[in-house]
Computed example of a mutant assay.
Amino acid sequence: MKPLDAQDSLRHLLNEWDPIGVADVVRDEYDCMIGPLLGRLARGAGRAEISEFLWFELEDHFGLDPASRGVDSMANRLVFWWASAVPS
Rank of each mutant, 00 (worst) to 15 (best):
M1T: 03
M1W: 00
K2L: 10
K2F: 04
K2C: 00
K2E: 08
L4N: 07
L4V: 02
D5K: 08
Q7H: 11
Q7P: 09
S9W: 09
R11L: 10
L13I: 10
L14T: 01
L14K: 02
E16V: 04
E16A: 09
W17Y: 06
D18L: 02
P19W: 05
P19T: 01
G21V: 07
A23R: 04
A23S: 12
V25N: 07
V26W: 10
R27P: 14
D28M: 04
C32K: 06
C32Y: 13
I34V: 15
I34W: 09
G35W: 05
G35T: 14
L37A: 00
L38D: 15
R40E: 07
L41T: 12
L41S: 08
A42P: 07
G44E: 11
G44P: 05
G46N: 13
R47N: 13
A48Y: 09
A48H: 08
E49T: 13
I50M: 03
I50H: 01
F53C: 06
W55M: 11
F56C: 10
E57P: 03
E59V: 13
D60K: 15
D60C: 08
D60L: 12
H61V: 13
F62S: 00
G63E: 07
L64D: 00
L64C: 00
P66Y: 06
A67L: 12
S68H: 14
V71W: 00
V71L: 05
V71M: 05
S73M: 03
S73C: 11
M74C: 03
N76L: 12
N76Q: 12
R77M: 00
L78G: 04
W81L: 02
W81R: 13
W81F: 08
A83K: 12
P87N: 11
S88M: 14
